[in-house]
Design a protein around this nucleic acid. Structure first.
Lengths: 247, 247
DNA sequence: CGCTAACTTGAACGCCATCAATGCTTGTGG
DNA sequence: CCACAAGCATTGATGGCGTTCAAGTTAGCG
């Protein structure tokens, strides 16, 4: 193995749940060792998707798990006629672990996307052999669980402007965690996906955007570039709390 | 080891995600082997809580994980002034895995409760040694993740009666999964917790109950015993789908 | 440069939040 | 065993906010 940082192979990013090493820094660790990444890479193939393409659909046989390399995908589940976006997944995220061999979500590319695709059987064989790797997956799943609970907290809010502010604050924090500039919030997905994620109609979401803009809390360079103008009002709306924790 | 089924030791119940063995039966497997349960039991202590007691609070240092033996607990997270119940946990469920060493939820007993309490350090040591056990935890976490997404789907519904119907359907299916009678739905938690879980005010929840009752879709023997009268209307409201799947 | 899809805006209605008062039940001590 | 209190639950009236449906606008892409 090289001494330098590996640039290839599946990668899982998460907050270290055991040691408060990065305490409060909001920086995610690479959980996998170089060795593990090499081993996973052996069973993985890289697949690319164009914006708008579907990676897989709810109900299909689940014969592979995925790891996002670049780009953004959405996960959504049918719910009586409609369809709810349950999460947006970014590089370092994991998806495709399933129940009874069938996917429970539909995954679509929000941007051009590259993913590692790992056959379920081979992955299972590795997980059953490598406890350390399994523990890393556990850590990542705990994080996705917390993220899902956070999503529920968005949906439990009664005012559209509040849901939107919380969402924007989340996007901002994710950008920071990725080490990107935080001067502007970039939204890779379109309004209909955001509306679905927030449990709002597109009209209500649009009005919420206009409301925040007219109150000079945010400004919009275009539909995908948002800047927070009044931090105080924004943070109060978005319930920004210094830090966060688990289950 | 005995050949007969173990009756003691931590226990994780989940749907087997690899093999469609119980396909469609809605029955959960015991994931842990007798051997694993014995090993876990060695580091676990049983703790009991009275109804209404708090097991731990959001933000406290997380030095143990828990496994429900009997009773029901609620997990809730603060969300700007209010507090949202994110899940109800039953025997065979796991909680307390955390980020950066602090709990992210508050756990309260809805009924008298018994839990296994496992010190985090010892647990981590076992997980890092036993890949099979870790994989079982992975399976369980995938399930909790799906459950959390289902919760989000409840919250995304716009009509209170629909949220309630979906919730009642969930409780019914959990009862069946536990092998209990399904002729009547029993609600171990009080109205305020249900309201919080569904993102409704108590008034709205109460009205939703009355609405379903007045339409003769359900009947209430008392506040905690509900029976579904009109299955057709109920299933349509609750979006009951034959089966379910994953991420 | 024109088409289509994405987004915004408008008006009316309905549902739920809100606040407050009343009714029920559970547990406790006399 | 009953009375009382404290919490839990239901009910009522009002208003705000988001849904709905539809038309209009902008932006993205060939």
């Amino acid at each position: 193995m090289l001494a330098t940082k590996l640039e290839k192979g599946p990668s899982i990013h998460a907050f270290n749940p055991w040691v408060p090493s990065n305490f409060g820094t909001n920086i995610r660790d690479q959980l996998l060792s170089d060795d593990e990444r090499v081993r996973l890479e052996k069973i993985a193939v890289i697949v690319r998707f164009k914006k708008g393409e579907r990676i897989y659909a709810e109900g299909e046989q689940a014969d592979a798990a995925f790891n996002v390399i670049s780009g953004v995908v959405s996960a959504s589940r049918a719910t009586g006629g409609a369809r709810l976006v349950t999460s947006f997944l970014y590089p370092g995220d994991l998806f495709g672990l399933s129940r009874e061999g069938n996917y429970t979500s539909t995954i679509e590319a929000m941007t051009p996307v590259a993913v590692y695709k790992m056959p379920m059987l081979a992955l299972r064989r590795i997980l059953n052999k490598d406890a350390d790797l399994s523990v890393d997956v556990i850590i990542k799943l705990c994080e996705e669980l917390r993220e899902s609970q956070r999503h529920a907290m968005f949906l439990a809010q009664k005012r559209a402007t509040k849901r939107l502010a919380m969402f924007l604050a989340l996007q901002e924090s994710l950008q920071i965690a990725r080490g990107e500039s935080a001067s502007e919030i970039y939204l890779p997905m379109d309004r209909s996906k955001i509306a679905s994620y927030l449990g709002l109609t597109q009209s209500a979401l649009s009005r919420a955007f206009q409301m925040l803009a007219s109150k000079r809390i945010i400004s919009m360079r275009d539909r995908r570039h948002i800047k927070v103008i009044e931090n105080n009002a924004f943070d109060k709306l978005a319930d920004v709390i210094p830090k966060e924790k688990t289950i």
